[in-house]
Each structure stands twice: as structure tokens, then as C-alpha cells.
Design a protein around this nucleic acid. Structure first.
Lengths: 257, 257
DNA sequence: TATCATTGTGTTAAAAATACGCATTAATAC
DNA sequence: GTATTAATGCGTATTTTTAACACAATGATA
């Protein structure tokens, strides 16, 4: 279905530059139009979508490799990035077998292709500001774009499971930590923040209790401005107090230390 | 300091049988004499202690490799085993540099020794019944024994950090899940269960509120027997209702499903 | 048989989470 | 202009959960 030329360029991947058998997979969440989105890549030779992934240089920390991959796909520097699980199954093919997958991706026959060797993959999820992302494909893909989390198609490998687990982890953390800084623009209204929470948690929240809880964290700063333009009463604009926000996060989520 | 013969036998390790650059580290918790214990190994050629670790066969799931290693160190089959973090720093030496570590462990000079290549390590913690464990060293070690968690010496690599993080994870899970089944003998009293919780959490708990909460989980079965022999009033014996226990755990902690 | 430390089983108070009421406001319709 | 409408700001009850505390019962020891 694809020319040999394209397939050749795919195999130019220099596996020797990376730690073999180890990879990173990224579940990058964004929020737009009242919908939680996830960033997916489209394989050049084929019809399939998958999660952005990355490999680790020999002298590179895994977390740095994750940040690097994230930067390459989004253009963003500092984001909320959290390891959530390591996927260590020997066979990580799900909807298609290894053979089927290799054919679909343009690697017929060559069962020793380094890209398709067994990989232990470390899953990270990221929260990014939708409007600031410049979705950028990598050398294996020709398209990078946002998908609604509840409209994600069957993905390659076990990537659907990864999204599920990342979402589950995000929900748990959201329930007892004031995450959300990285998903919204600098200034936002309380209803907007609430909609974000409702979307991630998948359930409606009481307007008044939500506001009380958010303010109780003492990480929000209310501005004098109000958001005009919409019909009805103009809501106040808020802004995260970065210092206090980081502080709360540090206490609640920090590892080793 | 050690004969060449011993060092040679150490290097007989056949790295080709395993996925390179990936390892497993185990934080095995036990409970005895009102103290939380962790199982450590003593390196044959040297004075240092470290966590039990393992490697992954090419066709083996990581979680299976973890169970296998755990079995080899303890003799136990079914235990509570939970992945808690993957340690991906390029340099994981802490108290000693790589060179110092290699000398201490009897690998002078040979900087290419496969055992000392960079490893991404997947951390698991396990809860086991102290009295049923048969501590067993591996090919690199000459002793395997329990240590009080708060008397653990400086360990090789980043293993002290691993214990810290495993303990933190255990505490968090204990706070909102009825873990403990695997740390106690089949029959136990409520005070014994409470002491276990107090030890892990590191704080005293109210006797009456503790009992109420434990019973509210509806996973304990009170037996007719009482524990005699001790001075004072004889407490009832309890037993976990395995089916209900597994059920609660499944709902609260299951991944990918 | 009295003593003592510990267990079994409550009840009460405080705090947190949840449910709900009503006045205010800014765009829209008339 | 003025009334209407739907959403916001800010408040108060209610329920549920958590934490604090009291007292009788028991079994070995003195």
C-alpha cells in the first residue's frame, strides 16, 4: 500500500543512540471547548493512531527523556508531567498481533526490526494548555492532533489501556489535589475551572461547594476584572498563585525526599 | 580484599538471558514483634547491604519476573505485590560513586561489566507473612535477613530512597484501603491488627474507632475462639474473608480494566 | 477473692461534606 | 427605556463522617 521508499526512511531510526528495550509513552491531556483532549499521532504508512512515545539516551534520565519528547510534540517547556505506571508485559499488542501490526506499519517480514523488539514502557501523563500547543509529528508519523478522550479510536499496542489508566490516575489525584494549573489559560473564571473538573471527573459538581473548596486551598487569587461578553452576570477572573500552588503540590505529591 | 576466585564466580552472571538495561527491585515488608521489617541482602564480597533485585527473561512479563524473584528470596508463592515507581535516573549511585561501588563489590577496573551498566529499575513492594518466609540469598549475596525499617543501614545504589518511597506508597494505600491480609497470620486479634497499622503509619490510633472502621469494611470474620494465654481479658480472633477482601481491593486498586 | 490491665461496646462532640435559598447582575427581548 | 432571563456571588441548613471519650466485662495474677 505504501512505496518502498517511505518504508526505508522509517528504518533509518538509529536504535543504538538509545537504551534498548526501554521506551516512554506519553498521555498528553489538554482541555478545550469543554472537552478533555488527548494528543495522538498518525502513523505515516497506515491508518493507525498511537500515543506519542520516546526513547532514552544512554546518559539521560528517563524523566528528562519524557520532558524532551513532550517538548518535541508540543513545543512546550514546563508542564505538569507525572509518571503513572510502567508497562512490562512481554507482549503488548492488543487489537492486532505483532505480525499484523508490522504489516500495517510497513515492516513486512523483518521480525528483528529493533522498533518492534520487546519494550518495557514507562507511562507519563502530562497536563498542558491546549491553546499553546503546536502539535508536531515525529519521524514515524505524518499527523499529530487532539482527540476527545471519549472518542479515541482503537490504538496500536496497549495504548488504549494506557489512556484509561492515565485518566484514572489523573482523576484520583484531582480528587485530593488542586491540579489544573497547566490545563487552563492564565486567567480564568470559576465556572470555567469547575467545567474542567466536571469534565475530568465525569460528573456534575455543586457550583457553590466547588467554589468553597477551591478557595479553601488558598491557591487562587481573585482579580478585579470580570469576564465580560457572555450573556448574564459577569464572573470574576481568577489566577493561580504559582508559589502557593507549587507548595501545596509539593507537600501532597512529592516522591523521594 | 577478596580472592580472585570469588570474584570470577560473580562474573558468571549470564546477562544475555535477560532483557538488558532493565531490572526489578523489591521492597519486601514483613511484620514481627511489633516492628515493620524489610528484607535485605548482603553482598558476598564486601560489607554492603542492598535490596533484592531481579532481571526479566526475554519472554517474561515484568510482573511475573517480580513474582519469581520474590519467590526465590522468600519461598512464598502468592503475596501482595504492587508496582510503586520506576527509577530511571541515568546515575543511580548515591552513597558511593560507580567506581567506589564496583571496587566495594569486587569488580575492579572492568567498567564494562554488564551488571553495572545503566539500569532502569521497576520498583515493587511486597507484603509477606514474616513467619512463613525463608530468607534466601542469591548468587551475588551470602546473607538474606530482616531489618527493622527504621534501622536500615546506608544501602548500595538508591535503595534507601526506594524503601522510603515504598513506605510512603504503602502508607497512602493503607489509609484508604484495607491492606494487611498478607502481613498477618491467618488468625489474629483486633489489637494485633491495630498494632500493625500503628507501626506502618507511625502513629497511635484510637482503639475503638479503629475497630469500628475495620469492621465497616466488612472483610473480617469474627471467630468463636478467643486468644488465651496473655494476661487480662482474652480478645476474639478474627480472620479475613478472602473473597470480600479481594473484592474491595479489586475495586479500589485495580489497574487497566 | 480482690486487683489490675486490657478488651468489648457503646455515646457524644466536632468537623467535613453535602444540599439548598436568595439576592445580584449583564445581556437580550420588548 | 424597561422587563425578562439565566447565570453568578454569597450565604445558611442538613447530613454524614471523623474524632473524642465513658464504662462495664473479663481473665490472669496477687
Amino acid at each position: 500500500m505504501e512505496s518502498r521508499k517511505e518504508v526505508d526512511s522509517l528504518t533509518k531510526w538509529d536504535g543504538s543512540a538509545y537504551v534498548p528495550h526501554v521506551s516512554i509513552d506519553l498521555v498528553i491531556f489538554g482541555f478545550h471547548d469543554g472537552q478533555l483532549k488527548v494528543l495522538l499521532l498518525h502513523w505515516r504508512t497506515g491508518t493507525d493512531w498511537l500515543l506519542p512515545s520516546g526513547f532514552i539516551h544512554h546518559d539521560e534520565d528517563v524523566v528528562d527523556a519524557a520532558h524532551r519528547s513532550l517538548r518535541e510534540r508540543t513545543g512546550l517547556q514546563a508542564v505538569f508531567l507525572q509518571q503513572f505506571h510502567t508497562f512490562g508485559e512481554a507482549v503488548r499488542f492488543k487489537h492486532f498481533t505483532k505480525q499484523e501490526t508490522m504489516i500495517r506499519l510497513g515492516f513486512p517480514g523483518d521480525t528483528d526490526e529493533p522498533l518492534f523488539r520487546r519494550h518495557v514502557s514507562i507511562g507519563y501523563y502530562a497536563l498542558v494548555e491546549f491553546s499553546e500547543v503546536v502539535p508536531t509529528p515525529d519521524q514515524f508519523t505524518d499527523e499529530c492532533r487532539w482527540w476527545d478522550v471519549d472518542a479515541v479510536p482503537p490504538l496500536l499496542f496497549d495504548h488504549n489501556d494506557m489512556i484509561k489508566l492515565a485518566l484514572k490516575t489523573l482523576r484520583r489525584q484531582l480528587s485530593y489535589q488542586p491540579i489544573g494549573y497547566n490545563l487552563l489559560p492564565e486567567k480564568f473564571t470559576m465556572p470555567e475551572l469547575q467545567r474542567l473538573y466536571e469534565t475530568i471527573l465525569g460528573q456534575p459538581l455543586d457550583r457553590r461547594n466547588f467554589q468553597k473548596r477551591m478557595l479553601s486551598y488558598d491557591i487562587l487569587e481573585r482579580l478585579e476584572e470580570r469576564k465580560t461578553g457572555g450573556a448574564h452576570k459577569a464572573p470574576y477572573l481568577y489566577r493561580f498563585d504559582k508559589a502557593k500552588y507549587d507548595n501545596v503540590l509539593e507537600e501532597g505529591m512529592s516522591f523521594v525526599g
